[in-house]
Design a protein around this nucleic acid. Structure first.
Lengths: 149, 149
DNA sequence: TGAAATCTGAGTAAATTACTTGGAATTAGG
DNA sequence: CCTAATTCCAAGTAATTTACTCAGATTTCA
């Protein structure tokens, strides 16, 4: 039941963007350096985030990425699902799934998977990037230095 | 964030046991046939379940497995964790983890992973095998036939 | 014009998963 | 006592997924 690096890197990178793209776009290179993630790999993640409408890009020199909307409109859930696909613990309860077996409506274990799925979605959809930004600011005030990985 | 077949098969098999081991042990062969799971693979899963004290075994001819305690003492969570390890979405918030990075206590994203972990554990620990047995019985009464995969 | 960036598709090594295989040990029933 | 049925155990393996790298095309600022 682990997230892949896509989801983990994605949240880190989006939080980095939220903290750094207030005055315009931010290059992947700088995110990659700050967060210690391969720049080439980040490109792939941002391609997905862009297709899902979570970030906007500016091409060419001095180009980069910025959040597509304000941080309080972007949930952790939307980021994770963009990069990981459905957060359902089993295919047959994926929100979009066509992979439902023929006994699905008489399947007891499926009820369990649904409950897990719903709770996970509940948590991740209740947390916005703004919430994380606020946490970072609080930590920085308390400690006097920058930590937010 | 998917469960592996270990967790899925494990829940199916344990529910099968709960329904069939009232009058003594049940062979893996019969579980494997009913649930359409490889018998050899099930052996490995039951080795883990036994080590975690969830099932008891009887060796030799006519031997088999039975639940180690009553179904209402066995949670879905304990079965899943026996087979999958910690259900934490990220290593650094595993309950047993020694893999905590040095910035852990100033890490904002870690708070997110913890919340996910706690909610997942909350759901799976709130469901017992007895709950699933009851669901099966209800379905059978309603429909008149046996379905519980 | 050149450097810095995004964009795109393909390739790949390592790890993980989902098994299979082979055989030893145990025990009920004939 | 023998045999078949079973658990137990350790290794091996094919397929899949992950986490990247690489190469190059395209765009745009200075």
């Amino acid at each position: 039941m682990k997230l892949s690096t896509r989801g983990r890197y994605g949240i880190k990178a989006m939080l980095d963007l939220a903290l750094n793209s207030q005055e315009g776009q931010v290059s992947l290179k700088s995110i990659a350096e700050r967060q210690d993630i391969s720049e080439n790999y980040l490109e792939q993640l941002f391609a997905m985030l862009r297709k899902n409408g979570l970030v906007k890009s500016v091409r060419g020199a001095q180009g980069g990425y910025m959040l597509a909307t304000s941080p309080d409109n972007i949930t952790v859930g939307s980021v994770l699902r963009s990069l990981e696909g459905s957060l359902a613990p089993v295919e047959c309860v994926s929100e979009d799934s066509t992979n439902v077996c023929d006994r699905a409506n008489a399947c007891v274990t499926r009820l369990v998977w649904k409950k897990i799925r719903d709770r996970v979605n509940e948590v991740v959809d209740s947390i916005t990037l703004q919430d994380l930004v606020n946490e970072v600011k609080k930590m920085n005030e308390d400690n006097g230095y920058m930590y937010y990985i």
